[in-house]
Amino acid sequence: MARPAGSTFRLVLASSLAVFLVGACSGEADQPVAIASQASSHAAAATAEEGPDDGRVALAADAKAENATTLCSAEEAQIFSCTVRGGKIASVCLANGADGEFAQYRFGRPSAEPELVFPTEASEKIEWASVPYSGGGEAQLSFAVGDVRYVVYSKVVRTNFTAGETNDPAISDGIVVLRSGKVESAFACDGTALKPVDVNVADAHLAKADDLFTYDTE
């Protein structure tokens, strides 16, 4: 079967992820953001007219273009970004706010205001975690709203352990939503304009957890 567009780019980034991790040693939901939105009203997206309460950035015009492939603006570093079923985009951007740089998760269609933005308050933070696997590894970005937790992941898993043969890595990226520690929904990136978790940017700007937020990212 032919590799999807951007497959070579993903493999290069996957190799970088594996090196970083070693050195440091599903069903799909149509509208999974509704889960977190119902859990807490303060996680709802801020409109362009109102703006976030603490003066943090609104979604930039170039990220709202009909053909946009990320919800990050051109001036923001992408920590993660991908499209999912239905043409929606999930992005984690390194934005500039009143208190300096911070990571912000955004979800929605590029031509409309985002359905979910987190954080919207200075006290809210996104964390990251990573673990090495044999011939690969996994990196995750996560935040919790009440008993609902979002986990964004990029994973490389070796599938061939025959001596002398190639690794044949299985590469996957997506978002898992957990309620009270149990998976409530999961959806995979479709490979369009994928930006896997950037472990270097995450390590430089986010607090790191001791272990993955979930191992249920199959």
Rank of each mutant, 00 (worst) to 15 (best):
R3F: 10
A5I: 03
A5W: 00
T8Y: 06
T8F: 05
F9G: 14
F9P: 00
L11W: 03
L17R: 07
V19P: 00
V22S: 07
G27K: 10
A29W: 01
Q31G: 00
I35D: 03
S37W: 02
S37C: 14
Q38Y: 08
A46N: 09
A46P: 08
A46C: 15
D54E: 14
G55Y: 08
G55A: 11
V57M: 10
L59S: 06
A60L: 11
A61L: 10
A61G: 02
A63E: 02
N67M: 03
T69A: 08
A74K: 13
E75A: 15
I79Q: 02
F80C: 05
F80N: 03
V84S: 00
K88I: 02
S91P: 08
V92N: 06
C93F: 05
L94T: 05
A98S: 14
E101Q: 15
F107K: 02
S111G: 09
S111Q: 11
L116W: 08
A122M: 03
K125P: 00
I126V: 15
W128P: 03
S130M: 09
V131S: 09
D147T: 14
D147Y: 03
R149Q: 15
K155M: 12
R158D: 06
N160D: 15
T162D: 09
A163L: 12
E165S: 13
D168M: 11
A170D: 12
I171T: 11
V176W: 02
L178T: 13
S180K: 14
A186G: 10
L194D: 04
D198N: 15
V199P: 05
N200I: 08
V201N: 02
L206G: 06
Y215N: 12
Y215V: 11
D216R: 10
D216K: 12
D216N: 12
